[in-house]
Design a protein around this nucleic acid. Structure first.
Length: 503
RNA sequence: GCUCCCUUCGUCUAGAGGCCCAGGACAUAGCCCUCUCAAGGCUGUAACACGGGUUCGAAUCCCGUAGGGAGCGCCA
């Protein structure tokens, strides 16, 4: 359901302000796809409007923040190509600023020192819960003047007690909160360090953020933040609370379903654009279009069109999109990704032309670059393995004899190209009254070690003359060396030989 | 417990009162193509959470109910 209000939050006079968005992750857990989608929406909205995008790391929880999580955020953004115009800012480096603002609030009576102990607050909460009330601070220190011996006070914001706060949300429409439901939240701990809701408000105001796009778990925080923004005399941003992403099972995103570091998707062989494409379609759509380039996303994305309901993560569709992006992109562009995946399998230094050829041949038959790498190992001599069961079925005595003759024919072939090879193979089969399959399949097994590969002509062309002839020879006894038919030992020996011949 | 939010095929979604006995996509089933595997093409199965209203007419507007989620921290 679309929300068509284009709100200018009350008290926001500025007319043509350009859009400034920010992504504000906290480094207490790994950046996962939930966070990435929020980042994506913020980034898209800024880029769509020709505005600015800021990265701000909310690391005020010094106990739980980790350097590793910060690293994942930074590297993840880089891998995804979500570039920022400002930042990364770190809240821990802005403590002086927060202290200054807090002092100002206290001075103006908009914040006050609270001497209640944690135990007292706990008792109060328990009593409220017992009365079936919403637990909230009762304001007992609101008018207190005197310090309490032995207690370092916290600072609380003096929230208005009457009236309503209206949130004009870009995705939810107007949401009303009663101030009487809110309480005086703590904005600084006894040691003076500020708390989350306060830092957000100061930062968003200082950084002149115009559009706050974040998970809808923050919707409940918004009225408090609006009250603080007003106390600070700052203009209100627009808000867009986007729905959360659920695991594939419909439950909250867990480690089992997608709540892994975003960098894992790189390792697993996904293209950043495919991941982004998948994520943008969670909660947003543009007619019936499923596949978007980065440029199309920027051109067509509109935060006003984002859905309100949470959506479940569907790994299958991600896979499909990844393949779509592989098939549509320039093969050259995929080469570095394929190289990285091959390196993980121990294959290095492959010729660029071969890699481009492999991409062209494989991308429509694999879902990820990782799969592409493992399905292409046989192109590299020292990775060839023959499945004994497959060999027994396809490399019969008859088949080997056939391959022996074929080898001579191929050896005599002048032009080693897919079309020439295709013509040769077809003619060879026809002469013998065989279907192409009767020739192609044994050949495929002899060359690849398995029953699956790109079209046989393409496979043979990419494999090259030397390796092709050597591998056939290994199966027909045409080799000079005795080779144990398909045993590990035999192949290892063969590999060394053809490795020298290949390339 | 209180407050706020959400609800169309298994999943992602289209849908702004008649264009909808609900369209697209993934997945799934069948067929076609075919040297394997794919890709591609065609066809099929499959949804408006429920109940009341409003209206000539409701997936769409209103009110309830149920289910789900979030918040109520000296976490972010």
């Amino acid at each position: 359901m679309r929300v068509r209000i284009i709100p200018r939050s009350p008290g926001t006079p500025q007319a043509q302000m350009s859009v400034i968005t920010r992504f504000a992750p906290s480094p207490t857990g790994m950046l996962h796809i939930g966070g990435v989608r929020t980042a994506l929406f913020s980034w898209l909205w800024a880029r769509h409007n020709g505005g600015r995008f800021i990265l701000r790391v909310e690391d005020t929880d010094r106990e739980r923040s980790t350097g590793e999580a910060v690293r994942v955020i930074l590297e993840g953004m880089k891998w995804l190509g979500l570039d920022y115009d400002e930042g990364p800012y770190f809240q821990t480096q802005r403590f002086d600023r927060y202290r200054e603002v807090i002092a100002g609030l206290i001075e103006r009576g908009l914040a006050y020192r609270c001497y209640c102990t944690k135990d007292e607050l706990e008792t109060m909460r328990a009593a409220q819960l017992a009365r079936k009330e919403k637990p909230r601070y009762d304001g007992r220190c609101r008018e207190r003047r005197e310090p309490r011996a032995g207690v370092e006070p916290v600072i609380r914001f003096r929230n208005p007690q009457d009236g309503d706060v209206l949130v004009e949300d870009l995705v939810h429409g107007r949401v009303t909160f009663r101030n009487r439901e809110l309480d005086d939240l703590i904005i600084a701990r006894p040691d003076g360090t500020p708390t989350y809701n306060f830092c957000v408000v100061v930062d968003d105001a200082d950084m002149k953020v115009t559009d706050v796009i974040r998970g809808d778990d923050h919707l409940n925080n918004t009225p408090r933040q609006i009250n603080m923004l007003r106390a600070l005399g700052a203009p209100l941003p627009r808000y867009a609370h986007v729905p959360m992403i659920l695991g594939a099972d419909g439950a909250k995103l867990s480690k089992r379903h997608g709540a892994v570091s975003v960098l894992q998707y790189d390792e697993d062989g996904y293209l950043p654009d495919a991941l982004l494409n998948y994520l943008v379609r969670l909660g947003w759509s543009h007619g019936d279009q499923e596949v978007f380039t980065r440029e199309e996303m920027i051109a067509k994305f509109d935060i006003n069109d984002v859905n309100k309901a949470a959506s479940a993560f569907n790994p299958e569709k991600l896979l499909w999109l990844n393949q779509q992006h592989m098939m549509r992109s320039d093969p050259q562009r995929l080469v570095p990704y394929l190289e990285a995946q091959l390196a993980r399998l121990g294959v290095q230094g492959a010729a660029p032309d071969l890699l481009t050829g492999i991409v062209r041949a494989q991308r429509e038959r694999v879902k990820t670059l990782k799969e592409m790498a493992s399905a292409s190992r046989f192109f590299f001599a020292d990775s060839m393995e023959l499945d004994p069961v497959v060999a027994a079925k396809h490399l019969t005595g008859e088949a080997r004899a056939l391959l022996g003759v074929l080898r001579e024919r191929l050896a005599a072939l002048g032009e080693w190209t897919a079309p020439a090879l295709h013509a040769t193979l077809e003619a060879f089969a026809r002469e013998r009254g065989l279907g192409l399959g009767k020739v192609a399949q044994p050949l495929r097994v002899a060359l690849c070690g398995g029953t699956v590969s790109p079209p046989i002509d393409v496979t043979v062309a990419l494999l090259g003359r030397e390796r092709t002839l050597a591998r056939i020879a290994a199966q027909t006894g045409q080799s000079l060396r005795p080779i144990g038919a398909g045993t590990r030992h035999g192949w290892a020996e063969f590999d060394i030989i053809s490795g020298a011949l290949g390339r």
